Computed example of a mutant assay.
Amino acid sequence: PAFADDLLPERVLSGDGTARRTLVDRVYRPLASAGGALFETATAYLDGGRGLEAAARALFVHPNTVRYRLGRIETVTGYDLTSARDAQTVWIALAVGRLAEQPPRAWRTPGADRP
């Protein structure tokens, strides 16, 4: 048995809207409102394959700054990005959060605009 909250990333991937909203509320919004530096650090760290040096280079900061920010991210979200499971959860939260912020796009049939 597992708690439903322990399976948030899997639930999001299976299409659970409640899990998606929960991750956005618990991770994406707190990171976005905590300041751009934490959000950018989380993104750079995860997009760079969880490499401290790669994230520091991408952000043009010292690696110790990235370490400090990772600690702040854990304080804000409750997730430790140096843990593979937590990193996966935050990565999914960032993805669904970005999708939630984008305005809906109208679907169109390919080739429908051709005469």
Rank of each mutant, 00 (worst) to 15 (best):
G15A: 04
T65M: 07
L94C: 04
A4K: 12
S83G: 03
A55T: 03
A100S: 11
A58S: 10
A34W: 08
Q88H: 10
R20Q: 13
L7M: 14
G51I: 01
E10C: 00
L23Y: 06
T77Y: 02
L7N: 07
G78F: 01
R57T: 13
R67S: 13
T18C: 01
D47G: 15
L8I: 12
Q88W: 00
A55Y: 05
A19C: 03
L52K: 12
D113L: 11
R108W: 05
A4R: 11
L52F: 11
A42R: 04
T41E: 14
L70P: 01
Y28Q: 08
S33F: 01
R98G: 10
R21W: 00
V27D: 05
A4V: 14
V27E: 06
N64G: 13
R69F: 03
D6G: 11
E10T: 00
G71P: 04
R114F: 14
W107P: 06
R108F: 10
V12I: 12
G51F: 00
P103W: 02
T65K: 13
I92N: 02
S14Q: 13
E40A: 11
E74C: 07
L81K: 07
P103N: 02
Q88D: 11
L31P: 08
W91Q: 13
F39P: 00
T41Q: 09
G111Q: 04
R50G: 00
T89S: 08
D25G: 03
A19Q: 03
L59V: 10
G97K: 06
V76C: 06
Y79C: 05
A54L: 03
R69Y: 13
P104R: 10
G36L: 08
R108Y: 13
V27T: 05
V24Y: 07
A100E: 14
L31K: 05
R67C: 09
I73C: 05
R105N: 02
R11Q: 05
R85V: 11
L38R: 12
G48R: 01
A37R: 12
Q102Y: 04
D86P: 01
F39E: 08
T75D: 15
D16K: 05
E74G: 09
A106G: 12
L46C: 09
A93I: 06
P63I: 02
Y28M: 11
L23P: 01
G17R: 12
P115S: 12
R108M: 12
